[in-house]
């Protein structure tokens, strides 16, 4: 196992070493110690590494991740897994705002709570939050799934496209064009799969599904006065 101590190595050194690994690397196990809230830890990885970060991180941890499995033994700052493409990221603590923003793929699991704008403009990523999420989550979400075991803040799924939102707890309010929808067998299957993959102990039957009413997709002449 490779171990990098951020008390003695620079962030640039860490990210260069991680980014240099090829898809067939033998050096799969990595550990980062003393992250001390630093920004941009483990961004742009492009190999099936297993990375353990021992402590809390700052902004943009695991951004643009492809293939790597990353675990953070702590909390993460704003923009964790921003634009993630694939792989999986597991946060043991809380996540700050816009977790998983614009993510195209992969699985982001947050054991604690996520703040506002979780999954904003998500484009295929799966996000499972074991705690609560803040306001404006999944704003303009295009595809992928957001699963929340706790409660959701105000304006959930505002201007939503085709992302699916599964919420077990209370929703403070729904955003424009977001409605509760029927939970069909295919949705239960997707949800069960994500709960299992993210290690969540929850019953599919306790969740409600929310999605787009699709009324904002096309210009409506009756709304002309609103612009």
């Amino acid at each position: 196992m490779e171990k990098i101590d951020l008390a003695t190595s620079s962030l640039r050194e860490l990210n260069e070493r991680l980014q240099q690994q090829s898809e067939v690397t033998n050096e799969k196990q990595w550990e980062v110690v003393n992250p001390k809230g630093a920004h941009a830890i483990a961004v742009g990885l492009n190999a099936p590494l297993e990375l353990l970060i021992k402590g809390s991180t700052g902004y943009y941890c695991a951004g643009m991740n492809q293939h790597a499995q990353i675990t953070v033994q702590g909390s993460v700052g704003p923009g964790v897994c921003e634009n993630m493409m694939s792989g999986s990221v597991f946060i043991e603590g809380d996540a700050s705002q816009y977790a998983g923003a614009t993510g195209h793929g992969g699985l982001l699991t947050i054991k604690g709570n996520a703040a506002s704008r979780c999954g904003i403009s998500m484009k295929g990523i799966n996000i499972v939050v074991h705690g609560n999420i803040g306001h404006m989550s999944a704003f303009m979400g295009q595809s992928g799934n957001l699963v929340v075991l706790g409660n959701a803040g105000d304006a959930l799924g505002d201007s939503l496209y085709e992302a699916r939102l599964f919420i077990r707890g209370k929703v403070s309010s729904l955003g424009a064009d977001c409605i509760e929808k029927e939970m069909r067998p295919e949705h239960r299957e997707i949800l069960q799969d994500l709960l299992t993959k993210s290690g969540a102990d929850a019953n599919v039957a306790d969740f409600k599904r929310y999605g787009s009413a699709r009324k904002l997709y096309n210009f409506d002449i009756d709304n002309a006065g609103d612009y």
Binding site: G37, G58, G77
Partner: peptide, 16 residues
């Protein structure tokens, strides 16, 4: 940012 707090005494056991 959390970075500003990392050198405070006993921060690892703080409620954050």
């Amino acid at each position: 940012e959390y970075r500003a707090l990392v050198n405070l005494p006993n921060i690892d056991h703080a409620k954050i």
